[in-house]
Amino acid sequence: MTIRHRFHLDQNGHSISVLYEGPRRPVEVLVDGKTVVMGRAPQAARTVLTASLPGDPPRPFAIDLACPADPADSPMCALMEDGMRYPMPDVPLRRGR
């Protein structure tokens, strides 16, 4: 059974979400509902994905996703922007999403 997580944060007027389904599965980063980067999560390790927020000029950011060694543990996700780290809460997915 796949465990699905959605990490979400509103930052600088933009909605940023990270969809994670478990180790060795795709990780998707969305800004304002549009996919901006995809990657694959390793098992029991960290994944860093980089993208930019729209604007003039675009604002670069990174997503740091830590995959736990024990499947019973929760993953950790944080947004990194301008030298700051913002933890992203795990927001439950609603039915149909």
Rank of each mutant, 00 (worst) to 15 (best):
R40Y: 15
V27M: 02
Q11K: 11
L9H: 08
R6L: 03
P92T: 07
C77V: 01
M84K: 15
M80Y: 13
L53A: 04
R59K: 12
S15Y: 07
P54H: 04
G96S: 08
P60M: 04
L65Y: 04
H5P: 02
G22T: 02
R46Q: 14
A44N: 13
M1N: 13
L79I: 06
P54A: 01
A78T: 09
P71M: 06
P68I: 09
E28R: 05
M76C: 14
R46D: 14
M88N: 02
D32E: 00
A44V: 09
G96Y: 05
G55D: 08
V29S: 00
V37T: 07
M38V: 14
P87V: 03
A62V: 03
A78V: 06
Q43H: 12
P92E: 05
L79G: 02
R46F: 12
D70I: 11
P54C: 01
A69F: 12
R59D: 05
P71N: 05
A41T: 10
F7M: 01
P89G: 07
D56P: 09
M1W: 12
Y20W: 08
Y20E: 02
P87T: 03
S52I: 01
D32Q: 00
M80A: 14
L19K: 07
A78D: 09
Y20F: 12
A51F: 01
A41F: 11
M84I: 14
D82H: 11
Y86W: 14
M80S: 14
Q11I: 11
V31C: 00
A41C: 13
G33E: 02
V29Y: 01
P92D: 06
S74L: 15
P92V: 06
L93W: 11
A78L: 07
R25Q: 12
G39Q: 09
A45Q: 12
T50K: 13
C67Y: 11
G96V: 07
H14Y: 01
Y86V: 10
E28Q: 07
I63M: 01
L65R: 03
F61G: 03
V29P: 00
R4Q: 13
D73P: 10
P23I: 04
V36Q: 00
G83P: 10
P87N: 05
E28F: 02
G13L: 06
P42T: 10
V91T: 13
L49I: 08
H8N: 09
L9N: 06
L65T: 04
P89V: 05
P60W: 02
R97T: 10
H8T: 08
R24L: 14
V48Y: 12
I3G: 12
A41R: 04
G96F: 07
L53G: 00
G39E: 08
L65V: 04
V18N: 03
T47M: 11
A72R: 15
P42K: 12
A69T: 09
D70F: 09
A51D: 01
P58W: 00
N12L: 12
D56I: 08
D32G: 00
M84V: 15
V31W: 00
E28M: 05
